[in-house]
Structure formats: structure tokens, C-alpha cells
Simulated assay, not measured.
Amino acid sequence: MRAAILVEGVSDSAALHALAKRQGRDLTAEGVEILVMDGATNAARYLREYGPAGQGLKLAGLFDEAEERFFRLGLARAGFEPGPETEDLEELGFYVCRADLEDELIRAVGAEQVLRIVAAEGEERSFRTLQRQPAMRDKTLLHQLRRMMGGRSGGKERWARLLAEAVPLDRVPRPLDMVLARL
């Protein structure tokens, strides 16, 4: 392994693997591994272990907007010098999903196409039930879709892979495209 992409969870890994495959890349053959940290709070440990003070790998990463502080702190503790802006993290190879991976993918694929995927996966009835719940009735379609994706065990991973397989390659969300291009 010569390089690693640090990600918060298995859904990020599933999306990146699917996109890399669609781009004709074999990450394993290239010596690039996607490391699932099981949450952004583990960023410091992974950055120390795999960064310059540890294995000395070339690193990049992907994180949700709400988790930026953990990556910033982790980078500082691992000997990197992250500046105060999100763009400073990008210069180091770490990219933010606004608001999260699911949000990025739904916007890139388009809500109507996502609904077609939901139907094709046999989940339309379940999704319509979720939409009728009192807490969901006034929410946007984007919010409802994001909620559905995280509502079941393994759901985020499943939907991340399906949406990454469906997104037009010229509409891949910027943070996913950039993190793959970095390594």
C-alpha cells in the first residue's frame, strides 16, 4: 500500500469503490486502500498511524460537513498544518461533503432518478410509508430520501453504492471526484 483514503464509514467506502470501478481504476493494483475509520472521531489515530509519523503513506480523506473539526484536529495532531479554512484542508487532500455523502449523491443523481432507483429496488412502498409519518410530512424530498437511506442497518452502504453506480460520470460530486483524483 502506497496511499490511503480515510473515510468515516462503509457508505463512503462503497461509493468510492463503485466510482473508481466506473472510472476504470483498480485501486488495489494502484496501491490505494480506502480505510474505514468507523467515525470521524478516529481521524487523529488514523492520521498518526498512516501519515508521516507512522507508515508514511500519501493520504487523502472524505468527511461530512459536521465532522470537519475532527479532521482538522486530527491533521494538526498528526503533524500537518491545516489552515483555518475548509479550502486549506483540500490543499492537504481532505474534502468535505455538504451536508453529507447521501446529500451529495442525491443532488448529483437527481431526486426524481433516485425515486426511480427506489422503485426498482422494491422500496417504493416503504418510502411512501416513511413520507406519511408525521415527523416526515413537512420535510423536503431530499430530507426524506436521506432519512430512508439511513433508516435500516446497512442502508447507507447499499444506497451509496447504488447512487454511485447511477450518477453520470460528468456529475460525480466534487468531493468524491477530487479525493479519487488526489491519489
Rank of each mutant, 00 (worst) to 15 (best):
R128Y: 08
E91A: 10
L105S: 00
E85Y: 10
L130M: 11
A119H: 12
R116H: 01
E87D: 09
S126P: 01
M136A: 14
R125C: 01
Y95S: 00
R116S: 09
F127I: 09
M136E: 14
R132M: 13
R137V: 13
R98C: 11
E85M: 11
V96F: 01
R125Y: 08
E124C: 08
G110A: 00
T129S: 12
E87G: 03
E87A: 09
E91C: 05
A111G: 04
T86M: 09
E102V: 05
A99N: 14
A119Y: 11
E112W: 05
T86I: 12
E102M: 04
E91T: 10
L115F: 03
E85G: 03
E102N: 06
M136I: 07
D88G: 05
E124V: 11
A135N: 13
Y95F: 15
I106Q: 05
E104F: 00
V109Y: 03
R98W: 10
E91Q: 13
L105H: 07
Q113D: 11
A120Y: 07
Q113F: 02
E91G: 12
D138S: 10
E123L: 13
L130C: 03
D138K: 04
E91I: 03
I117C: 04
R107T: 00
E91H: 10
D103A: 10
A111L: 10
V109H: 05
D138L: 09
E104N: 02
L130I: 00
A108D: 05
Q113E: 13
R125V: 13
M136P: 06
T86W: 00
E112K: 12
E102H: 00
L89Y: 01
Q133M: 14
E90H: 08
R107A: 02
F127R: 05
C97I: 07
L92W: 01
A119E: 15
V109F: 01
T86F: 04
S126Q: 13
D100T: 07
A111D: 09
P134E: 09
V96H: 04
D103G: 09
L105E: 04
A108S: 00
R125P: 07
R116F: 00
I106M: 07
A135Y: 13
I106H: 07
E123H: 11
E87W: 08
Q133N: 09
G122K: 02
E87K: 00
R137Q: 15
R125T: 14
D103R: 06
I106G: 02
A135V: 14
E123M: 13
R116K: 12
G93R: 03
A135W: 12
A111R: 09
G93F: 01
P134A: 10
E85K: 13
E102C: 02
A111I: 06
G110L: 07
Q131R: 13
C97T: 05
A135T: 15
I106K: 02
E112T: 11
A99R: 15
E124H: 12
A99P: 15
R98A: 12
D88N: 05
R132V: 11
